Simulated assay, not measured.
Amino acid sequence: MLKIKIRPGRAIMGHLFAIMTMMSLLLAFLILPVNTAFALTLDSIFPSNGATGVVVDSPVTITWSDNVNCATVTTGSVTIRPPTGLTWAMTSCSGNKAVFVPGGQTSSKIYTITVTTTVRDLSGDAMAANYLSSYSVADVSSACKDQDLDGYGYPGNIACPKGAASDCNDYVASINPGASDNTCNGIDENCNGIADDKYIPTNTTCGTGACVTTGQNVCRYGMIVNTCTPVTEGPVSNLMCSDGKDNDCDGKIDSADSGCLAQLTRSVTLTWLKPAANTNGTQLTDLDGYRIYYGQTSRNYTSVMDINKTTSYTVSSLSQGTWCFAVTAYDIAGNESGYSNEVCKIVN
Rank of each mutant, 00 (worst) to 15 (best):
I4S: 09
P8H: 15
I12M: 13
G14H: 13
L16A: 08
A18F: 14
M20D: 07
L30H: 10
L32A: 11
P33C: 12
V34D: 07
V34R: 05
V34G: 03
T36N: 14
T36S: 14
F38K: 15
A39S: 14
L42W: 07
L42Y: 01
S48C: 02
S48A: 01
V60N: 10
T61E: 12
T61V: 15
I62H: 04
W64K: 07
N67Q: 10
T72G: 08
T74V: 00
S77D: 01
R81G: 09
P82R: 01
P82E: 07
P83T: 13
P83G: 04
G85V: 03
M90A: 09
G95A: 12
V99G: 07
V99T: 01
V101A: 11
G103H: 06
S107D: 00
Y111A: 00
T112C: 00
I113R: 01
T114D: 02
V115C: 13
V115A: 06
T116G: 14
T118M: 06
T118R: 03
V119T: 13
M127Q: 13
A128L: 13
A128N: 03
Y131I: 05
L132T: 10
Y135N: 05
S136M: 04
V137H: 04
V137Q: 00
A138L: 07
S141R: 13
S141Y: 05
C144E: 05
K145Q: 06
L149H: 11
L149N: 07
L149A: 10
P155Y: 14
N157A: 00
P161V: 15
G163K: 03
A173W: 04
A173N: 09
I175H: 01
P177E: 06
C184Q: 05
N185I: 02
E189G: 11
E189Y: 03
N192A: 08
G193P: 12
G193R: 03
I194D: 11
A195V: 07
D196Q: 08
K198G: 06
I200L: 10
T202N: 07
N203E: 10
T204A: 02
C206N: 09
G209C: 11
V212E: 01
V212D: 00
T213N: 02
T214K: 00
Y221M: 10
Y221E: 13
Y221F: 08
N226C: 07
P235R: 13
S237Q: 12
M240D: 12
C241Y: 00
C241L: 04
K252V: 06
D257H: 02
S258D: 05
G259F: 05
G259V: 06
G259L: 10
Q263D: 02
Q263V: 03
T265Q: 05
T269C: 11
T269A: 13
L270M: 10
L273G: 14
Q283W: 05
Q283Y: 09
R291S: 11
R291T: 11
I292D: 04
D306V: 15
N308V: 04
S312Y: 02
T322Y: 10
W323D: 01
Y330G: 01
D331G: 07
A333F: 09
G334M: 11
E336N: 00
S337N: 10
S337Q: 12
S337T: 15
E342Q: 15
C344I: 02
I346H: 13
I346C: 02
V347C: 12
